[in-house]
Amino acid sequence: MTSLFVDRRGVELGLESGAIVFRENGERIGTVPIAPLTRVFLRGDVNLPAALLGKLGERGVGVVILSGRTSRPSLLLARPHNDAARRVAQVRLSLDEPASLIIARELIERKLTRQIEWFTELRENDIQARYELSRALRGLEEHRARLGNINNAASLRGIEGSAAARYFTGLQAVIPGSLHFHGRNRRPPRDPFNALLSLTYTLLHSEITIALHGAGFDPYIGFYHRLDFGRESLASDLLEPLRPLADRFAFALVHRRVLDKDHFTTTESGCLLGKAGRVRYYAAYEEHSEILRKGINQEIEQLAEQVGSALTPESGNTPDHDSGDWE
C-alpha cells in the first residue's frame, strides 16, 4: 500500500509503535503501518494528534486534507529537499521569458502528444465514435504542429485552449450518454464525468505539489502558469502533460462501470460523488496510482534537467527579464 484514504465520520487516528491506530467511539477498529505509506488523504470529520502528523512528516509522507463539499485540498508537506540552489535556479529561469517559454511549450507538446496517442487507441476500438475522434485528432495534430512557431506565452495559451476545445469534443463522443457529458465544466462540475475529472485533477495536483516540495522546487513559481496568489503554479504546469493520464483513468471508471450515474448526486451546488462511489473511487485510484506517480516522477526529472542548466556557469544563462488551474 502507498496511499491511505480515510473517509469516515468521527474516526480518531493515533500513533502507536510506528503504526496508525484507528478508533471509533473509543474502540480500536484497525491499524495501518506507516512504513509503506507515501500519501495520506483525509476527508470529513477525522481527528488525529500532532505527534502523528510529526511522524508522517518525518517519514516523508504528505497529508492531503479534502474539506468541504467540493473537497478543496489543504496540504501538510513533509520535510523539504535540503538543496536551496535548485530553488534559486528555478526562480532565475522563471524570470527569463525565453527560457520559460521553452519549458512551457514542451509541457504543452507532451500534453498534446499524450492526447493524440490516447485518441488514436480509442479510434481503433470504438467504431461508432471514429468520425468524431478522427476530427479531434486532426485538430490536435494541427495544433501540435503550430507549437514550433510560437514566440510568446499568449500564443501558447491560445493554442492550448483551442486544442482543449477540440479534445473535449472528441472525448464527449466516447463518454456514456447517461452521464450527460457535453464538454468540460467546473466550479462546480455539473455532471458525473466532470465531477470525476475535477476530483482526479485535485488529487493529482496535490500529489504533484508534495512531490515538487520533496524534490527541492517551489510549487508556487511556474513557467506556463505565471505567479498568482495562492496558486501552486509549478504544480499546475506539471499537471498539464499529466491530464491525459487522469482522463484515461476517469474514462476507465465509467467505461468498465466501476462507477455510474447512480453513484453521483446533482443539486444546485453541482454534481458530487457519493459515499459509496468514493469507496470505489479511492480503491481504483490506489490501483492506478503507480502510473500517475511514475508520470509525476518523469516530469520532475525532466524539470530538474532543465533547471539544472541554470546552475551551470558555462550555460550562459543570465536571466534579466520579467516574465491554471488545477481543476
Rank of each mutant, 00 (worst) to 15 (best):
A195H: 03
L204K: 02
L66S: 04
K261W: 04
V174K: 07
I65V: 15
H143F: 12
N152S: 13
G230Y: 05
S233Q: 02
R110Y: 00
R39V: 04
P241V: 01
S17W: 00
Q306V: 02
V6R: 07
L13E: 12
T267I: 03
G30N: 12
N152I: 11
T70W: 06
G18M: 02
I296G: 11
Q128A: 14
S17H: 11
H182P: 00
I116M: 03
D320Y: 06
E142I: 02
T265C: 01
A89F: 10
L147V: 11
I103N: 05
R123D: 01
L15A: 07
P33V: 01
E141G: 00
R256Y: 12
R257V: 10
G158L: 10
G274E: 14
H213Q: 12
I34S: 04
I108G: 00
L133M: 04
V46K: 09
E207L: 14
M1A: 08
F251K: 09
L75D: 03
A19I: 01
A99I: 01
G158C: 10
F5H: 14
N185T: 04
S309K: 14
A276K: 14
S178N: 10
E286P: 05
L147M: 03
A19Y: 00
G308L: 09
N194P: 09
Q128T: 08
V21I: 15
R280G: 02
P36T: 08
A153I: 15
A129V: 09
A310I: 05
G57F: 01
R86H: 01
D320L: 13
G183R: 12
E121P: 00
S155D: 06
A85W: 02
N151M: 01
I127E: 12
A215P: 08
A154Q: 10
G277H: 05
T209S: 15
V88P: 00
G30F: 11
A276I: 04
P36D: 05
V11G: 02
I20Y: 02
I175V: 15
F181E: 06
E132T: 08
G222F: 07
S198A: 15
A173H: 13
E327R: 14
V279D: 11
I159V: 15
V6K: 06
F264G: 12
R39M: 09
F264Q: 12
S100F: 03
E314P: 01
I291R: 15
A246K: 09
R278F: 08
G158H: 09
A276V: 10
D262F: 08
F41L: 15
G10T: 09
Y285M: 10
W118S: 04
L137F: 05
N125F: 03
D260G: 13
K294T: 12
K275C: 00
I296S: 08
S17G: 05
L107F: 15
I116Y: 00
G214L: 13
I127P: 04
V64M: 03
A153P: 05
T31A: 06
T265R: 13
N82H: 10
A252C: 01
Y281E: 06
D96L: 05
L48E: 03
L212N: 07
A310W: 02
R166D: 15
L311I: 08
